[in-house]
Write a protein that binds this DNA or RNA. Sequence first.
DNA 1: CGTATAGTTGGATTGTTGTCAAACAATAAA
DNA 2: TTTATTGTTTGACAACAATCCAACTATACG
Lengths: 126, 126
Amino acid sequence: MRLLPHPATEDIELTEVLRALSDPVRLEIVARLSVAGEMTCTVAGDDLGVHKSTASHHYRTLREAGVVLTKQVGRLKYMSLRRDDLDARFPGLLDSILRATLPAVLTSAEGTDAAAPVPARSGADA
Amino acid sequence: MRLLPHPATEDIELTEVLRALSDPVRLEIVARLSVAGEMTCTVAGDDLGVHKSTASHHYRTLREAGVVLTKQVGRLKYMSLRRDDLDARFPGLLDSILRATLPAVLTSAEGTDAAAPVPARSGADA
DNA sequence: CGTATAGTTGGATTGTTGTCAAACAATAAA
DNA sequence: TTTATTGTTTGACAACAATCCAACTATACG
């Protein structure tokens, strides 16, 4: 299990995060990650409408901006949102963006208490 | 008093707002506006380190993204943040960005207490 | 070993963006 | 009317970014 190179929490730049999230494809990837918790690149990039190399480029952009964490297990690479790091550095930012991105997913059910903003991280998944 | 063309509140796109705010110069302009409430372009662009035509381009970008509202009074153009519109469309987004931005911007004066929700809007707007 | 799977890299292309400089437009003031 | 002030527009240009395709690496599985 290898961890790919990522910026340290304190090195995450606001403008880079905003730029990373200003692309619809990347925003969609992030939205999926927020729901699924952790996904392989193949799953995250499924039906995105772009070539796999393009998707790979977006994974890299997200990783280098400090938005996602990527770890390699075997020949698979798992991506997950760096929720805690982002929230520590820019409190409330990711939540507000996710809320604006996934209105249907959240505002539907969910007790939505202040302690559980946005889809709770569902760590383990299928 | 003339109002320049702006996108309607419901037409403000998240990705465009994020993109608009992903530029350091524009982010600085927005930070200044959040403190001053309303400024002329000259004041907002003072000491930004870019040519005035470049600043003008940024004003336009911010306006077209729906981030700022511009009204012309005489030969002056006053810009102000579209706080209410942005907050209605993307709750909490602008605040989280300003909170992450301001400490670095107004390192002087201002209590910058963590409890205060970003500088209060000092503009004459609603 | 050979083959399939997962994802990256390099090249090419096309389009976007940030920047400056100079010319311009509109308004206010003298 | 002439001049100064404010800001925009246009053109040029270099840097960047999104995309595809093809080739590549690395791991897993027979």
